[in-house]
């Protein structure tokens, strides 16, 4: 069974930090405490072609499973959301975590603050939205729901497990 990457309680878990991006032009929301990779992310095809890159940028239509054999070279995967209604990136992130990837997954593009809670649950741990979030909205979005109904790529315990604490894991 694939180890699930912790989200809320994991490395750099907590409430996340809003910090200036390296370029300084907008804020990132980051839930990790390792140093942010600063090399530019390359396209999936380019990444698979060259052996020295450590960051890759996935477009919405890219098949994330192609990264399976090369996960150990990766430090950052950027997943682009061309429109917030395009939900393919949610699957990309969760599949990455299911494959055992523990590096950074960053949501970029049209990312709305109302979506970051679900994104966190799918394994995203940093956010570089087109329009910066404000702290208050982030806190509200992240603390809104007291429970979850189903397991995802985080450590959150689904309600059914809380209802049956006597059951073995799984």
């Amino acid at each position: 069974m694939v180890d699930r990457n912790p989200v809320a309680g994991g490395p750099g878990g907590g409430p996340g930090t809003l910090e200036p991006a390296p370029g300084g032009e907008r804020d990132w929301l980051r839930f990790r405490d390792d140093p942010a990779p600063d090399e530019p992310a390359v396209t999936l095809d380019a990444f698979l072609d060259q052996s020295n890159a450590g960051s890759v940028r996935l477009e919405a239509g890219d098949d994330v499973r192609r990264l399976g054999p090369v996960l150990d070279r990766l430090r950052l995967v950027e997943v682009d959301f061309p429109r917030f209604r395009d939900g393919r990136g949610f699957s990309s992130a969760r599949v990455l975590r299911e494959m055992g990837y523990t590096g950074e997954i960053k949501a970029t593009g049209d990312v709305l603050v109302d979506l970051i809670y679900f994104m966190r649950r799918c394994g995203f741990d940093s956010f570089a939205p087109n329009v910066p979030f404000n702290r208050e909205d982030v806190n509200a979005a992240m603390s809104r729901y007291p429970y979850v109904y189903q397991p995802a790529a985080d450590d959150a315990v689904p309600i059914w497990k809380l209802r049956h604490p006597d059951l073995a894991n799984g």
Binding site: F84, R85, D86, G87, F90, S91, R94, L115, Y117, F118, M119, R121, C122, Y145, V148, Y149, Q150, A152, A153
Partner: peptide, 8 residues
């Protein structure tokens, strides 16, 4: 209800 992966 509130499926993270399938919210959009």
């Amino acid at each position: 209800t509130f499926m993270p992966e399938f919210s959009y």
